[in-house]
Amino acid sequence: MAKIVDVRINGRGGQGAVTASRLLAEAAIIEGQYVHAFPNFGPERAGAPVTSFSRISPEPFTEKIEVYNPDIVVVIDSSLLGDVQIAEGLKPGGIIICNYEGKLESLKHYFEGVDSKIYKISGTRIAREELGINKPNMIMLGALLKVVQIVKLESLIKVTKERFKGVIGEKNSKAMKRAYNEVTGNGTI
């Protein structure tokens, strides 16, 4: 039971949070793991804060419950930091991975008093440079896999290429690999 990992992805409508949690789960499936991935259903709209979840376990599990206490929180959009309770429900000692341009120290101010390990990646910059558009969702997953290897990077790249055919898939794969190497934070990487 303890092996279940719950990932929450916080983003804004249109940034690909739902796609990210879905692809993360699909990557786990092709590795033979068991998953339950779903968006936080409600009135969604481009730009509105949305959340999406992936529950991943190497062993079969039966529970069908929304994720209230994630192990990992991925923040796709730094503008959420002030608005939304990012660390809400995070398990003690959990992991927060944030798309953030500034210094790690200034990021930590947002999470004072929260028992967590905090990582950052300049996702938006990588997205601009590698993809040409501001879609940092897959980049954040690349960073996540460096921090916690819940699935292998190869699996993620494989499902990404299946989902985004041709040049977009190639570009995303490259961006993910770059994120994998560039993520920084205060825990062991």
């Binding site: 789960a25 998953v35 339950h36 419950i65």
Partner: peptide, 12 residues
């Protein structure tokens, strides 16, 4: 099948 928690959730 229950709405959303099954219908919209990705599983193996």
């Amino acid at each position: 099948i229950e709405g959303f928690i099954v219908t919209h959730a990705l599983e193996r």
